[in-house]
Design a protein around this nucleic acid. Structure first.
Lengths: 149, 149
DNA sequence: GAGATGTGGTTTAAAGATGCAACTAGATTT
DNA sequence: AAATCTAGTTGCATCTTTAAACCACATCTC
């Protein structure tokens, strides 16, 4: 059956997952962040079925995460590039990456690492902080329901 | 066909999604972070099919994100609680939440908000930073393949 | 202590999602 | 003009999700 939609959930996590939580969606965004723009390059790098790629790209464009632009090489083909909304998924991507880095690799395994391109050093580890800069854990949080301003 | 596994990908994002990227998995973790512990409470809050919940909980336990413990009320039932590995998904959760907060709600819509429980103030917005504290965007990054130490 | 209810599942069938291979129309290269 | 590349679409087989029924055991109520 169809996956249950959470598009009208009051929880932003649920809504976010509704938009980028499908198989492949975040991997497409990841590759887009690395500069991949063409259908065939997504297909080749991700090794995914073309029909699914078509559907995912369409959805990401509809959601305003990618946009279609004329090819930058002057040909008549199209390219997909991240919008601001899409680029703003970077913290999600890096958080996911750092968690995987820490827990899902054994010693000696090859893995890709993200670096600051200015000085080629690793990034700061992402943490959740209070307004005044204290690092917060799961037990330092509470939830409230409010209306968006 | 079966979803293609990325468990041996060299990309930590792909591996992370292999572990927590299935439908419902992150929503279960989210609720676990809010203190939900019982099968029936996950079921009720998430409104999901029980068989899928069974499979997801089993996988999350296998992956070491949740662990099964005797019920805290002394009854013979079981409870699920986050391990350290599971709690460390907090930055992912908060990043996802903040993105959704910004882009997926219109004015006046109700939504849940996470607060620092000490002073009941909103959290700092998560950003990707270099080692020396500069905020980095998609275009300030590069990738390298290394062996895990 | 018997019956009702709660807990934590398993089983089944229908429908949706995914993967693979084959096909295609237009653009580009040779 | 023919071959190839690009970005898909279509059809089919398989897998996953859902909803609903069913079940064993634990706990609560009287």
């Amino acid at each position: 059956m169809k996956h249950k939609s959470n598009e009208s959930s009051t929880c932003p996590v649920a809504r976010s997952l509704d938009v980028v939580g499908q198989w492949w969606s975040l991997l497409i965004v990841r590759d887009a962040m690395l500069g991949v723009k063409r259908f065939s390059e997504f297909e080749r790098r991700l090794g995914m079925a073309k029909n699914i790629l078509t559907v995912r790209l369409k959805k990401l464009v509809e959601e305003g995460i990618l946009r279609v632009v004329p090819a930058s090489d002057g040909s008549a083909y199209r390219e997909y590039e991240l919008t601001r909304k899409g680029e703003d998924l970077l913290p999600v991507m890096v958080a996911l990456r750092q968690w995987g880095d820490r827990y899902l690799f054994r010693k000696g395994e090859e893995h890709s690492l993200l670096l600051d391109s200015r000085d080629h050093k690793p990034l700061e580890t992402m943490t959740v902080r209070s307004e005044d800069g204290r690092v917060l854990g799961v037990h330092d949080l509470e939830m409230e329901i409010v209306k968006t301003s």
